[in-house]
Design a protein around this nucleic acid. Sequence first.
DNA 1: CCCTTATTGTTGGCGATGCCAACATTGGCG
DNA 2: CGCCAATGTTGGCATCGCCAACAATAAGGG
Lengths: 156, 156
Amino acid sequence: MDRLLGVATDDDSTPSVLMATPSWLLTQSAMHAHRIITEAFAAGNARGYHYRLLATMAEFGAASQASLGRHTGIDRSDVVAALNELAEQGFVQRAPDPEDGRRNIITVTPAGRRQLKRLDKLVKQAQDEVFAPLSTADRATLGRLLAQVLAHHAGS
Amino acid sequence: MDRLLGVATDDDSTPSVLMATPSWLLTQSAMHAHRIITEAFAAGNARGYHYRLLATMAEFGAASQASLGRHTGIDRSDVVAALNELAEQGFVQRAPDPEDGRRNIITVTPAGRRQLKRLDKLVKQAQDEVFAPLSTADRATLGRLLAQVLAHHAGS
DNA sequence: CCCTTATTGTTGGCGATGCCAACATTGGCG
DNA sequence: CGCCAATGTTGGCATCGCCAACAATAAGGG
């Protein structure tokens, strides 16, 4: 009786078509994960780009901005902005490459290394929050499957 | 020898810290999925919002804009814009609710139903592209795990 | 019956992310 | 020397999600 005109009076609930679409589940889960991670970074006065850049330099050492962009998958233009912010906070240092006038050599400062440690901790906590409902085995399975998907689209 | 100054001369490759972070795998996979889905929608002159709205009305029948927003998880203000575009294309129809002066009743037109069918097909193709490396069983497992994660964060 | 509160449609704006175009500078190579 | 590639930088665009404000309307309590 409450749908005489096809106007549902009850709300909420997602269409089953969407719930049955894998990529919907994927992007929605990722949205929650992204929100949680973003909040975690915000608690450390950072954004995802900053973490990616710091983690990359910690693993591969100092590098040019273009190289950082390739390692992190961040666009050159966005690397500029993120590094500006990191430099303002004293976490990285820009220096012209004496061997190549086009390049800047970006170095992580001791403060930057401390910041990375803080962010690492925040990221770890966020993981537990995101994947709370999954057992350790399930998390491993999920990671494996996602890694497969990711590898498949890596070249693009 | 080529890392005298810590400047790596080889590029590409993602830091292992990131690859070991589940939420990184999740958001990156989702990004590829999102890109592929977006392109598929673009091929049908649509965006994600349009598909969500059409699919919702197909399943729950005509509804007010606010109701559509709750069903789809799209903000009221964004529902307005998306419906404007759908109306311009003749896929939906806006009519004032005779029983409630505040509401509009949104109806899918026959053309809208055809568009939804087209988009459904595009979405299905996109799924195969996104999850190509996974077997049917793996896709089911992935779907189950993601649904668990999604359900856990549903209330938020 | 009035007044308060809630709902609805709408406009406008913000931030994060990713992407692309353009441009000047500089290197490298034929 | 001259052309092409790489680099840093600026500026812009699209999607997506979110929030604030506002006017009109409904609904419910005193």
